[in-house]
Design a protein around this nucleic acid. Structure first.
Length: 589
RNA sequence: GGCCCCGUCGUCUAGCCUGGUCCAGGACACCACCCUUUCACGGUGGACACGCGGGUUCGAAUCCCGCCGGGGUCACCA
């Protein structure tokens, strides 16, 4: 063993490249790595693979840390992050207890360089000077001949000359000399895999810009950080033989032992319903398609549709940028600008990144539960005799093992996630529900939070909780209370049916009810319900004939949360003002 | 196209390793009915799958072979 005697028995790692928010597929990988480490009292480590200077950003790194922390996937080693917990305490995630950091690959270039040098000295790796054009030509030729393109060091390669060029400072990539033997390895979920060496090329381990490639950095770091189990997406399956070849060639410079081969487990891809890969660009794609459908060609077309509604983030965009975006599939709009646009044109943007789900009002528990089931199944029955599907991370940790990880790709079913989320919300206590909603609304629905206030919401938490599929649903549920008492519109059909019909029976009920509501000692859900109930019984009208007219009177429509809650959130004054206004308007009409 | 992986209801899956208990079970979605002051919740019921073709066997979703289908990958991106 290379690591200190106190090294944990199992070390897993999640190693994202910071090019944007954490993808939902990445979240599942992280979850499984985390669960496996916890299951075996091991350590879960987070490493940021920022070797691509052009695409990596610090903001993205921070975003990924936040996403993971929000999900509740804690890392033991890695970048330090202070998470604010719901109860006001702070938890510090990450750290460097075994002195194996830094956890940013861009900080570790000296380490990679020394291993590259070691390989080059032994002619196990070599500098290459092919032009991009020459490489492209070789690829084309291979394609024409219908074979895999495999880069090999040319027969007339002059090592001394190449080394001299490299030492003179000419920028060049370093390639690993692939041994001429087939590579085999075991995958914990897929089984034994063998790859013929004519499929394996002399791949680049250090780019001309001096940064290591993914393949190299990952191998060095997993050895130096003591990774025992590598779990990652199946798109890496074809890279694994390269990594194994590297591991077999390398020697740990501190222990003088050859690299250990960790266990591998490749997780299947998560796809959209139409089998396309879930991609961050899907959101832009959805919006772009809708624009085409609505024949929107310029930013002005969008503003015209917005009817003077302010769209701060969208307006921050230059019209030229927008038009370019419309015509260029490769372009992505800034998150909030895209959401502004979506609200105007009426598309639902598919959630792809963890942060999308957060902003759409999903609970981390529900997201975790759902993605755990994508490719893993406990294979157990619950007390009701049905397959066990709903569980928390504690259960996952207790049960997670590779033998129940699926081999076939799965499609992401948003409807099922919503069902999980709806249940998760319904199971929250009223206080917890409000706490969670308020935390969410502070970032994502400030208007509702401010307009209604948490105190008024407290009155109706119980009534709306069970009606929310996501936290976002609170708003439409209470939107009737967000307009002034004289500003909501009456739905003509509902007015006809519940108020005017039967010679204005509904209106008569309102006139009878108003003084009773006025006189009610306490204007809370229970008292209101009791009053309505008594009125329905005493008059012999039945609840339907009492509740519906009232509902239409105070909200303008025949659909709202239960009446007690509806009236309570409006308050006594609001309720009476609305009944008065209804009586005035509708009677006159 | 080469290579690698995969193939049970629309979707996620249980069952497959250790053939019979599977005319294939659950969940989500869907449909119907019930409950009901609207919406929602809940309850009951329904429709829906072993990709195809050959073997092996008394017997195959389960084992073998072929075909077909899907995905991944073929970068100085990870």
């Amino acid at each position: 063993m290379t690591s200190t005697p106190s090294a944990p028995p199992v070390i897993t790692r999640f190693a994202p490249s910071p090019t944007g928010h954490l993808h939902i597929g990445g979240a599942r990988t992280a979850l499984f790595c985390w669960a496996y480490a916890r299951r075996h009292n091991g350590a879960f480590l987070l490493r940021i693979e920022d070797t691509d200077q052009k695409r990596s950003s610090e903001a993205a790194s921070r975003g990924i840390l936040e996403d993971l922390a929000w999900l509740g996937i804690d890392w033991d080693e890695g970048p330090v992050f202070k998470r604010e917990n719901a109860d006001g305490t702070t938890t510090t995630l990450g750290g460097n207890p075994r002195s194996v950091g830094s956890f940013y690959q861009s900080d570790r270039r000296d380490i990679y360089d020394s291993y590259v040098d070691w390989l080059v000295e032994r002619d196990l790796a070599y500098p290459a000077f092919d032009t991009p054009e020459a490489l492209a030509a070789m690829r084309q030729l291979a394609e024409k001949e219908k074979r895999t393109f495999v880069y090999r060091r040319a027969a007339d390669y002059n090592r001394d000359a190449a080394l001299a060029r490299m030492r003179s400072g000419e920028p060049c990539p370093i390639r690993f000399k692939m041994p001429a033997t087939p590579i085999d390895f075991r995958d914990e979920v897929l089984g034994d895999i063998t790859v013929s060496n004519d499929e394996l090329d002399d791949f680049v381990i250090r780019k001309a810009d001096g940064f290591p490639t993914y393949h190299f950095a990952v191998v060095i770091d997993d050895e130096l950080m003591g990774t025992t189990h590598i779990m990652r997406g199946q798109e890496h399956l074809n890279n694994t033989p390269r990594h194994v070849a590297l591991m077999r060639a390398l020697v740990n410079q501190t222990t003088n032992r050859t690299f250990r081969i960790p266990k591998f487990a490749h997780l299947t891809v998560i796809a959209n319903q139409d089998n396309s890969k879930m991609s961050k660009r899907d959101r832009d794609k959805a919006a772009r398609a809708k624009c085409r459908e609505l024949n929107i060609k310029t930013a002005d077309d969008v503003r015209a549709r917005a009817n003077a509604r302010p769209l701060p983030r969208f307006d921050a965009l230059s019209p030229a940028d927008f038009e370019q975006w419309l015509g260029d599939k490769a372009r992505q709009l800034e998150t909030h600008a895209l959401e502004d646009l979506a609200s105007v044109i009426g598309v639902e943007l598919p959630e792809i990144a963890v942060d999308d789900f957060r902003r759409s009002g999903y609970l981390p528990d529900a997201v975790l539960n759902y993605i755990a089931l994508l490719g893993w199944n406990p294979g157990e029955k619950g007390p009701d005799g049905k397959d066990l599907e709903r569980f928390d991370t504690g259960y996952l940790v207790e049960k997670f093992a590779f033998d129940r990880v699926g081999k076939s790709a799965s499609k992401f079913d948003r409807a099922k996630l919503i069902a999980f989320n709806q249940d998760a919300i319904a199971q929250l206590s009223d206080e917890e529900f409000l706490t969670r909603w308020a935390a969410w609304a502070r970032r994502d629905d400030v208007e509702t939070l401010e307009r209604l206030g948490i105190e008024r919401l407290k009155l109706v938490a119980g009534a709306i909780k069970g009606r929310c599929r996501t936290l976002k649903d609170v708003r439409p549920l209470v939107s009737f209370a967000m307009v002034d008492d004289d500003a909501y519109a009456f739905n003509p059909k509902d007015v006809e049916k519940h108020l005017k019909a039967d010679d204005g029976a509904g209106l008569a009920t309102l006139r009878a009810l108003a003084p009773k509501l006025q006189a009610l000692p306490a204007f809370d859900v229970a008292s209101i319900d009791a009053l309505l109930d008594a009125h329905a019984t005493d008059t012999g009208l039945g609840m339907g004939k009492v509740a519906q007219p009232l509902r239409v009177a105070v909200t303008g429509a025949a659909v709202s949360p239960p009446l007690g809650a509806t009236l309570a959130i409006l308050g006594r004054d609001g309720t009476l003002a609305r009944i008065r206004r209804c009586l005035d308007t509708v009677t006159r009409a």
